[in-house]
Amino acid sequence: MKITIQNVWKTKSIEADNGKLRELKLLSDINIEFCGSCIQAILGPSGSGKTTLLRLINKLDSPDKGHILIDDVPINSIPPRQLRKDIGMVFQVPALFRGTIFNNLSFGPILYKKEFNTEQAKRLLKIVGLNDIDLSRDIDSLSVGQQQRISFARSLANEPRVLLLDEPTSALDPSAANNLLDLIKKINKEMGVSIILVSHIMEHAQRIADFICLLVEGRIVENGTASSFFKQPQTGIAQKFIRGEL
């Protein structure tokens, strides 16, 4: 699925200490096209608006101005539930439902009245690298890293065509993070799921992304293929980011 973002602005009014409302610019004039079948990384320091941008694509928020098109269809003319079935999102926090692992994994299939048995659940767990875990485990008994993987598997159970991943490796140690990244690559290649990966860690994008854009203070400052991003960054800000000075 091709995702086009045109002239998108997003502000938020927040209450300042003196009680007055202040307009905070979260995203300013975002223009970008995400290719239909690749891995696109959105890099940027914390607070640069990455999560905000991702939420717009899944329609959990709406832009103040501008257009978002999915395969050239304006997002506003797609019913939210249909859109969200096709475009899955994995949050920065695990956001699991209370109950067991199986309760969580079966949520989507039950919603769409698809058959879902323990075999399928185990297969999903295997994909996310949780091989010997009991499906009836309560999610409260899991580590945050495990929860994050369950949350990833839960989105996969929906068989989405696009996956929006918001820092999916943030609670994992480096080797587990690399495993998950390789797995994301595999899902992209073997299942044809387009990936939009948000991260503030450059190496993650370097490892798997085909395209990279750099978001700083709500603006896209650099956008192109992964190799050109690292070999010949166009802007001073991108060079700084690559040197780890941002």
Binding site: L60, R84, G88, M89, F91, L96, F97, Y112, S155
Partner: peptide, 20 residues
């Protein structure tokens, strides 16, 4: 809040997502 949004993001209706 995250539980509700996670359910919405999976394509659940508002009622379904806030049901628990």
């Amino acid at each position: 809040r995250w539980e509700i949004e996670a359910a919405l993001a999976l394509g659940a209706s508002p009622f379904k997502s806030i049901n628990p």
